[in-house]
Simulated assay, not measured.
Amino acid sequence: MKQKVYPPIEALLPHSHPMILIDSVVQHTNNMVECEFTISPKSFLFDSLINGVPAQAGVEYMAQTIAALGGLASYERGEAPSIGFLLGARRYHHRESCFLNGHRYLVHAQELMSDSSVAVYQCKILNDKNQEVASGQVNTVVASSSMLNALINNTEQ
């Protein structure tokens, strides 16, 4: 079976380096996405004292994976990725103190519910031994034009 080739992650996220933390999309459906990242000394937030990236960054890896799902939908419509915001994370648990140098991780995000702009995702991060090292529920919102204008101009919607 031929593996699907996805666009580069830079085409799917409304970020630029060094703020892009994930490397690529490996699989997706309409409401699920899996992305991967590998930790190296060049990784944003890398801490040489712990030889990795602090475990708390897992929430951002999850949020960027969710953004990649929206970016794929925008890409397929020929549009730029939408700007979204992380509203919060619930029940975030990490089982290791950091994401270790030289290791590859897989982030899985499954949409649990959504309305026109707000969505909730169940997420988990697996290490290169397929063991779950972090999990949590992430709440997001896709910004409307009026919301962005209000934020930029510091006015109310």
Rank of each mutant, 00 (worst) to 15 (best):
Val26Leu: 05
Gln64Trp: 01
Lys2Gly: 09
Ala67Trp: 01
Arg91Asp: 14
Ala57Gln: 08
Gly88Ile: 11
Tyr6Cys: 05
Ser116Glu: 13
His93Ile: 13
Tyr92Ile: 07
Glu79Phe: 01
Gly52Lys: 02
Gly88Arg: 11
Gln157Met: 10
Gln64Thr: 08
Lys42Met: 08
Thr29Tyr: 06
Val53Phe: 08
Lys2Asn: 09
Glu111Pro: 01
Phe85Gly: 05
Phe37Tyr: 00
Ile9Asp: 11
Phe46His: 02
Leu69Phe: 11
Ala109His: 07
Gln137Glu: 15
Glu60Cys: 10
Ala63Glu: 04
His103Leu: 08
Gly52Ser: 01
Val120Lys: 07
Gln131Ala: 15
Ile39Phe: 01
Gly71Leu: 02
Gln157Val: 05
Tyr121Gln: 01
Thr29Arg: 02
Lys4Glu: 15
Leu86Cys: 11
Met147Lys: 06
Asn154Pro: 05
Met1Pro: 15
Pro81Ser: 05
Glu96Ser: 11
Ser82Pro: 14
Leu86Lys: 05
Asp23Asn: 06
Gly102Gln: 12
Cys98Asp: 12
Arg90Pro: 00
Leu106Cys: 11
Gln131Val: 12
Ser97Met: 13
Val26Lys: 00
Ser40Ala: 08
Ser24Trp: 00
His93Ala: 14
Asp128Ile: 05
Leu45Arg: 00
Val120Arg: 08
Ala57Glu: 10
Phe85His: 02
Tyr61Trp: 09
Ile9Gly: 11
Ala150Met: 03
Gln64Met: 06
Pro14Cys: 09
Arg104Asp: 13
Gly52Glu: 11
Glu96Lys: 15
Glu60Pro: 01
Ile66Asn: 06
Ser48Phe: 04
Glu34Arg: 10
Thr155Val: 03
Leu45Val: 04
Gln137Val: 14
Glu76Leu: 01
Tyr61Pro: 00
Gly88Ser: 04
Gln110Asp: 15
Lys129Gln: 15
Val59Ser: 04
Tyr105Arg: 01
Ser16Val: 15
Cys35Pro: 00
Glu132Ile: 13
Leu100Glu: 14
Met19Phe: 15
Lys124Gly: 10
Ala150Leu: 06
Ser16Ala: 13
Thr155Leu: 00
Ala68Thr: 10
Ser48Cys: 01
Met147Thr: 12
Pro41Tyr: 00
Glu96Phe: 06
Thr38Lys: 03
Val53Thr: 00
Leu13Cys: 11
Asn127His: 04
Asp128Thr: 02
Leu100Gly: 13
Val118Tyr: 11
Gln137Asn: 03
Ile152Leu: 15
Tyr105Ser: 02
His17Asp: 10
Arg90Cys: 03
His103Tyr: 13
Arg104Ile: 10
Ser43Asn: 03
Thr65Ser: 12
Asp23Val: 03
Arg95His: 15
His28Ala: 15
His17Val: 12
His93Gln: 14
Ile39Gly: 06
Asn154Tyr: 02
Gly88Asn: 06
Ser114Cys: 15
His17Phe: 07
Ile66Thr: 03
Asp115His: 12
His93Arg: 11
Leu49Trp: 02
Ile66His: 08
Ile9Thr: 09
Glu34His: 11
His103Cys: 10
Leu148Val: 13
Gly136Ala: 08
Gln157Asn: 14
His28Met: 01
Val133Ser: 03
Val26Cys: 01
Ser116Ile: 07
Asn51Cys: 07
Gln56Glu: 10
Val142Leu: 14
Leu72Asp: 06
Ala55Leu: 03
Gln56Thr: 14
Asn31Lys: 09
Val120Gly: 10
